[in-house]
Design a protein around this nucleic acid. Sequence first.
DNA 1: ATGGTAGTCGCACTA
Length: 277
Amino acid sequence: MKIKTASWNINSVRLRIDQVTQFLTEQQPDILGLQEIKCVEEQFPYQAFRDIGYEHIEVKGQKGYHGAATVSKLPLERLPTEFCPLGHARHVSTRVQAGGTDFEFHNFYIPAGGDVADPVINDKFAHKLDFLENMRTYFSGRAAVGDDRLVLVGDFNIAPHEHDVWGHKQLLKVVSHTPLEVGILETLRQTHDFTDTSRLFASETEKLYSWWSYRARDVMKSNRGRRLDHIWVSPALRPCVEAVGKAGHEIHVPCRTWHAKPSDHVPMTQILDLSAG
DNA sequence: ATGGTAGTCGCACTA
């Protein structure tokens, strides 16, 4: 059984509900993790998703800021997790029923971290590091991450590799690409042997971006992007990614300019051949 | 070193 997973920082799900439903209709992922929905649960446009076949919806919202939601064609069971030390709505964990099998889908919105890459003088950067530490604690505390079938998606707000940013040297002191946060994220990934699916079949020097700032003119022409969004899988699911090959992964770059008012992030999708795991 | 844009709880905050 093949399933298609997706992740997208939508920057207000209510404002861009038509873009989300267009994406779902065209790409037909089985499950989508949304970040920055910017609404409370009661304001979430449930019906628009149900109308096009996404009947299973788990939302963690808050007023005005942040928020995450997972919408799915496959049945979901909410898992009780908490990663944010400030209690922000930045995470939804679910178990997904996929035919005769299942897997966990962890949808993250890691804090951006403010402007100054020093946790002593910048509370937002300290918060980002604390959130990452809570992720580390959670996964280290699980008995057998290597055997468990986990998909981690979301806006991690970290571009780990040199060619995940338009200018490695220019961004070394810019939050999202500093060695401190990159090192923590890479340690988390390597500790559990998570596969960063965007890089599995891409060459190390291929530029990959999922986000382009609003604060620049002709941003796609200058192409000053960063790869802040990720789909990771645990070792148990790695064969499911390998089985579908490079074509199974897609960063939907045209979505950065396809509507007059796009999100600053584009969606990405990863197909898993669950029969290979 | 600064400022640029976007969305929301809009006269401020987060990104």
